[in-house]
Amino acid sequence: MTNFRNHLYFLLLGALALIVLPYFISSRFYIDVLTLIFFTAYLGQSWNILGGYAGQFSFGGVMFFGTGAYVSSILLTTFGFPPIFGIFLAILGGAFLGLIVGYMSFRSGLKGSYFALITLAFAELLRVLANSVEFTGGGVGLFLTYAPGLSNLQFESPVGFYYFALILMFISIAIVYWLESSRFGAQLVAIRENEDAAEALGINTLKCKIYAIMIMGAMGGAAGTFYAQKYLYLDPPIAYSIHLSVEMLLVTIVGGMGTIFGPLVGAFVLHTVNEIARHFIDTPGLSLIVYGLILIIIIGYLPNGLIGAFKKKEKKSDSTSLDKKTSRGDS
């Protein structure tokens, strides 16, 4: 228990540091990079719930992001509905999309590569739809007006968005913290480790997986509103870009799947590498080449991500986190 207490103090200290950090950084550049790191960590965390904990890899995670972004932006542009409430409808929209996609694909027993591919197809389907119908602005896109204010979730200084992203990330970490200690989280891990065994133990695997993808969807929806209000522009290739889908899984896998801080660590490392690479050679594509290489290296040599590699060294005698999780899942 003291271990847990120490852990908690450490955590609060880290959170506090991130909260006061903007007072010590005057450079807009660093604030923006940090905002982006929190944003990707948040999205990665949403992927982590379904991919890392429940073991269902999605290649189209961006669909929730895009749908949420469209929900709140269309409400704003057509009805003048303030995004501070719109974000909740975006969350609902994302969760509802998660319900549909989850129900359709999990009920048919799709898993592994098939599930990954069907989520990719759903994202592609939504991209084509958004491109073809009128109320999304079609290929021209949606332009949001710049009107800073809390009700618009827009801020004059980048520090405002820094805190917005930070809050989102804190919430995502809280969700996964809850997951780690909840029955539901244990059920997800049981599904990941052995779905048939989980089913035999009486876990309603279909329901659990659908709940997991709904949580992912809800989180993605909020991220969409954040993005739309920060960048004030949305079009189908942005809203449903495969790059964001890849980035979500990338940061999580690099940091460590099924861990609380994996996505944050991954997002931090990848963005830092990206900025350094950009500093030396600023050519399109280079940073993504590095991302691809890192992904392959991590899969090949560090299947538990950076956190996994770190933990292994730290406590060799202690039972590994994986053992703990499976035993909890079985009980």
């Binding site: 890899f57 990954a116 890849v246 280079l286 992904l295 899969i299």
Partner: peptide, 25 residues
């Protein structure tokens, strides 16, 4: 890949990112 289905999917995904952006580069 060590024979795991999802590993191969992810490795080939990484490969596609490298090839695509290598071409861009």
């Amino acid at each position: 890949a060590k024979g795991k289905d999802q590993n191969i999917l992810l490795i080939t995904l990484g490969l596609s990112i490298i090839i695509e952006n290598g071409a861009l580069f």
